[in-house]
């Protein structure tokens, strides 16, 4: 049997334990999809797979047990999902055009969750639109608030929703619900001064607990959508580690520009001998030094006035 495994992988199929048998990987940006696509997955799994579907750790689906020869048929059946989820594609009917840049994951976000500061799925889809298809190994995750249910600090780029609390002192009756909530559930940056509340903006993480706790609407959310961008978290063999804060109070345009700049940086600096052309960005930064990365990442980025850039960054983690 002759099979170009490089082409197969690029087409979002997998080389498996079993010779001649593959698995189809379906990306779901933001991890949210219309239920009607589940019946398509079922059809593929039952017609060409082994009748099972794996829910992947990156919020996609993987349909195992597909014979190499059936890949074109699977790709045809996948077309409504690829189109319906608005995935960039080169030739309709031929499946996914790349697999290197991984599915962009997201927590449930503010479509459902009271804590979330924004629509995580919608933002994930906008990121997907500008970065896919791409062969480079990028992992991006979004979470609605600093609770970080999406574990974004385990990703190359972690996007965490923040809100800049707005305080209307004339509506404050000093019930201290916000002070207590901030102390017990968050980072303790609210203090009662003369029966009103003072916030320490430098230490505030923008979680919105004060807004949620306030019974009179004295605390409300800021108008601007702002985020914390964490970078270069990773799992893996050599040095798994949590992502560190890069920019606090950044906006969407800034995040997207930094991600795109990082593609240029990686293209320039990736180890030409990297196995399978795949090297975690964090290891490239370890090699070039953070300052070189920062220079590339922030090129032409317009940050909001209140944005705080962390520099230098030192990562910890487990070193083997």
């Amino acid at each position: 049997m002759d099979m170009n495994t490089k082409a197969l992988k690029k087409n979002a199929f997998r080389v498996t334990k079993q010779r001649g048998v593959t698995a189809s990987r379906i990306r779901v940006p933001g991890g949210h999809l219309e239920a009607k696509y589940l019946s398509v997955l079922q059809e593929i799994a039952e017609k060409y797979g082994n009748g099972t579907v794996h829910i992947t750790s990156r919020q996609g689906f993987e349909i195992p047990g597909i014979l190499f020869e059936n890949m074109p048929y699977v790709n045809e059946l996948l077309q409504p999902i690829i189109q319906g989820l608005n995935i960039n594609q080169k030739t309709p009917g031929q499946g996914y055009p790349a697999a290197g840049t991984r599915n962009v994951t997201a927590c449930i976000g503010n479509r459902v969750c009271p804590y979330a500061c924004y629509d995580t799925t919608a933002f994930a889809q906008r990121i997907e639109k500008v970065i896919f298809p791409n062969d480079l190994h990028f992992k991006i995750a979004l979470t609605g608030c600093p609770n970080d249910c999406a574990k974004v600090r385990m990703h190359d780029f972690g996007i965490m929703g923040m809100t800049e609390p707005q305080y209307d002192k004339d509506r404050c009756i000093n019930c201290e619900a916000c002070v207590k909530a901030c102390k017990k559930k968050s980072v303790n940056v609210l203090k009662t001064v003369n029966y009103k509340v003072e916030r320490y903006p430098d230490r505030c993480i923008g979680c919105g607990e004060c807004v949620l706790a306030c019974p009179t609407g004295a605390w409300t959310r800021g108008e601007k959508k702002l985020y914390r961008l964490t970078i270069m978290g990773r799992t893996g063999k050599k040095n798994p580690r949590l992502g560190e804060d890069f920019v606090k109070w950044i906006d969407e345009a800034g995040i997207i520009k930094i991600i795109l700049n990082t593609y240029d940086y990686v293209t320039q600096h990736i180890d030409p001998a990297a196995p399978g052309g795949k090297e975690h960005i964090g290891y490239i930064i370890d090699r070039t030094g953070f300052e070189e990365f920062r220079k590339w990442a922030l090129r032409d980025v317009q940050l909001p006035k209140m944005a705080e850039v962390s520099t230098p960054i030192y990562w910890q983690g487990v070193k083997y």
Binding site: N110, A116, D119, G208, G217
Partner: peptide
């Protein structure tokens, strides 16, 4: 607009 406790919700005041 946007003044409800949850994000992207309104408050009528």
């Amino acid at each position: 607009s946007g003044k409800g406790a949850f994000s992207e919700t309104d408050s009528i005041r």
